[in-house]
Design a protein around this nucleic acid. Structure first.
Lengths: 350, 350
DNA sequence: TTTAGCACTCTTAATGACTGAGTGCTAATG
DNA sequence: CATTAGCACTCAGTCATTAAGAGTGCTAAA
């Protein structure tokens, strides 16, 4: 009874070896092969019983009657959560990673380098989300009249990040009024956190009827539009997609195609990555777990990277479900760590 | 003698039909099939002689002994240059194109829409190069001190294009000096063409020793750095790459992979497109003509689009060499025209 | 000059025999 | 009672054979 619903030691052992072998060869593995494995002291017949149990539990399946077994998504899940022994990343690789990251000058370049590194080392697709700057410090604002009713707003935050957009204020302002408004904002708010500015402006607008300071009200009116939902669409840097074309696991082109379309549309990938940000260590999504059909035969391994003491984004790898998790997981982790360090360095001593 | 080196009427006719049929079915076409064609009044035996001549001239080849013939790159070239009869784009499609282009608001969005349109209609990959803004009108400049020796320069050109960069001027300036400098530049140069500004600044710098206007010299010093080589790397917008995955013509994955890698690295594609800008009508590069191995089984059809009376960039299509040139060529041309019109509209009445 | 005819080549699909890997079940074994 | 050996059975993959079909090149006749 119990035997077929719960994993005993022996079954675990068998499952582990089975998954490892399958990850290595990509061939369904049979009972004979398992019994030959050095640390299994059972005959193929006994193993057949065990494997039959595993199949009943939905951890393995066989592609056809007379083939060996391959792990199911659930099988991979159990393997990764309970049975996996990770192999540490070799010092050589770590040095290589660090070196190539040091070469990158700009922050943006740093991200794409990290992505390329991941894909190069793993021979799968690497990805890095852009850092979510959660703290924006207001630094400077500028209004430039374009035409009758449109104003170009240039907003500088943090050190040197320049955002711009065109807004259409409800009430028209003369050029000199705009300059006044900008001066006011720069004088009052420079150095403040941007959410704070946004709230303060909202308050000022509410009190606009009582209208104590005409200037403040005027400024708030134009500026509130500029500050609205300033967070840029989050995005990610992908590298080495083409590596996936060589994976024997994607047999038909249709599958590959939907995968690449998902890469292009980005949204579904972003959804997948979004969940990861909340977590702390490496997160692994296996095959259909993610709900995205396009990623059916894929696994995604992500790990958050820190800027300061905040999670800024995630780095990760997308590859076939049949991948060397023992090597890839530590690779993703170390890359996240190194990227965080590199970004912090740039931040503190530019 | 002459017969095997020069194309007579009959050979042309045969070649034309052969290419057309091959483009349709993708199957090698044999003499029997050709002789059945309505407007050929020859037996298969006679046709065999003609086709043998075509093969001698390197216009067709046969994949193996007992198969029909398929066009070579040269064969396609002759077909396109001399024999092709283009079918005009249906009014319905033109309307659809125009409509969807009108929907796009931003110029950038316009480009990607055009690219998507091309790929959607043709079921191949569409591409549009970013417009090479040859005329930049200086509008506004702003200097923001970042630290001791670094200044953030924000430059607004044309209507609403914002560029920014960090410069390290040789001589330090106080914040108030920077503001003065910006005011000076904005007052003197607003509305002028940017090359003109650049030259004028260079002049001012040369005369700096005689130093008539202190303010001008100061401004020129900081600003000259900002104006240096402002042109951004040219780039292109690609859409519908994945359409190419379904082309039966790319049989092996390796080929597809090198193609997609070329898309990612962009440079080789840019080289290819760069040549096109000089030309006037549609330009067609067939297979290996381009020298890029990655594009071996591809053809590229491009057509320049105009902004004002200048060639701003090109739109185009990348697809398998075996494509319906008669439909694609006019499609590319009309899209180039419509895109130009749309861009001009945005420009003149925003 | 064109055509009809024929021998020949080569691909493709279908068939069938055979092998190898693997399973499930049962009965014997320690 | 768990383990093992043995056996019948299944299925995918390989290989050779076969037959059909498409197409060519060449020659001789119209």
């Amino acid at each position: 009874m119990n035997k077929s619903t719960e994993l005993n030691d022996r079954a675990c052992q068998i499952l582990k070896i089975l998954v490892e072998r399958y990850i290595n060869d990509g061939q369904p593995v049979g009972s004979r092969a398992l019994s030959k494995e050095s640390n299994v002291k059972l005959s193929s017949a006994s193993i057949r019983n065990v494997v039959a149990d595993l199949e009943e539990m939905g951890l393995v399946e066989s592609p056809h009657t007379s083939a060996g077994r391959i792990p199911t998504d659930n099988g991979y899940r159990v393997f990764i959560d309970n049975l996996l022994t990770v192999s540490p990343v070799s010092g050589g690789v770590v040095n290589q990673l660090r070196k190539r990251l040091e070469h990158a000058s700009e922050p943006t370049h740093l991200l794409s380098t990290a992505s390329e590194l991941l894909s190069d080392v793993s021979r799968m697709a690497g990805l890095v989300t852009l850092p979510q700057q959660t703290i924006h410090v207001f630094r400077h604002i500028e209004f430039l009249p374009l035409s009758e009713d449109r104003v170009l707003v240039i907003l500088v935050t943090n050190e040197q990040e320049v955002h711009h957009r065109v807004v259409k204020p409800e009430h028209k302002s003369s050029p000199s009024e705009l300059i006044e408004a900008a001066n006011y904002l720069n004088a009052v708010y420079s150095g403040h956190e941007i959410n704070e500015v946004r709230n303060s402006l909202a308050d000022t607008l509410k009190q606009a009827r009582e209208l104590v300071e005409r200037q403040a009200a005027r400024a708030a009116q134009v500026a509130s539009l500029a500050f609205e939902s300033d967070q840029k669409d989050d995005d990610f840097v992908l590298a080495g997609q083409t590596n996936l074309m060589d994976c024997s696991d994607f047999d038909d082109v249709a599958q590959l195609r939907t995968l690449f379309e998902a890469f292009n549309h980005k949204q579904s990938i972003l959804n997948l990555l979004g969940q990861a940000t909340s977590d702390d260590g490496a997160r692994i999504v296996i095959g259909e777990e993610c709900g995205e059909e396009a990623l059916g035969a894929c696994s995604v391994i992500t790990s958050p990277y820190m800027v300061g003491d905040q999670i800024a984004g995630v780095v990760g790898i997308i590859g076939p479900t049949r991948m060397h998790y023992d090597q890839v997981i530590p690779l993703v982790n170390i890359t996240a760590k190194l990227l965080g360090e590199a970004l912090n360095q740039k931040k503190s001593s530019p």
